[in-house]
Design a protein around this nucleic acid. Structure first.
Lengths: 109, 109
DNA sequence: TGAACTTATAAGTGAACACTTATATAATGT
DNA sequence: ACATTATATAAGTGTTCACTTATAAGTTCA
């Protein structure tokens, strides 16, 4: 692997808020508006983080209706290491379960 | 592990020049003046990188005479992962062997 | 068609970063 | 004591980063 690729990968993970985003994604795929409910961040900020994660190869996106569903890129060679790293981190305060309880979980069918 | 600790660890690795420094250290402990010979960087820049690596828990230092010998911190819980990451990177251009051949390898006894 | 909703992008801002040069500190050897 | 060597630190600079607000683009549904 090239130094530049490794650098962008590590820089993409190495941010407090992006680690939380990635932690959520280990459980399930989510869209931007769900992240805005889960985390205390504005929509453009989330979008910009996702773009950075995508450029580093950490996540993939899939357009579905008006939503963009984001998932971990399980094909990346460092994916197993990423899963291990994230497993060491505590669960975020807000859970997806609370989202469901509030009727804010997106179902795009 | 706390998010803050993980963040500083990943940020410390996630720099092109620090990755090269760490790569060198996987083979053997080195002092600042050796790094200045191996890499195209000034002495203060190396010193500042080492300080950052030390603060993140990646390396340890040991004063010996006028030299400060830097080593990988094998006691850190993420040390095995670090070794794996570094193993994926190509060897730097300048090798310690060339340093020895030029009589620039420090022997502090 | 038009309003509501979701997302992406652009421009601006303050903080952090990696580097530079200059200088201070400390150990060694004559 | 003094010059040399090795390292650390301070101050300054240009770039990158994470965020903000404003706005554009695209989808859905009445």
């Amino acid at each position: 692997m090239e130094y530049l690729e490794m650098e962008s990968y590590l820089k993409a993970i190495g941010d407090h808020n992006r680690m939380i985003i990635l932690k959520y994604l280990t459980a399930e795929s989510l869209c931007i508006c769900e992240f805005t409910e889960l985390m205390d961040m504005t929509q453009p900020t989330i979008s910009q983080h996702m773009r950075k994660l995508k450029q580093a190869g950490l996540v993939t996106e899939e357009k579905r209706g008006r939503w963009t569903i984001w998932s971990l890129n399980i094909r990346h060679s460092l994916y197993p290491m990423l899963i291990h790293l994230l497993s060491l981190l505590p669960e975020p305060e807000r859970t997806v379960e609370t989202l469901i309880a509030e009727g804010k979980k997106v179902v795009c069918e």
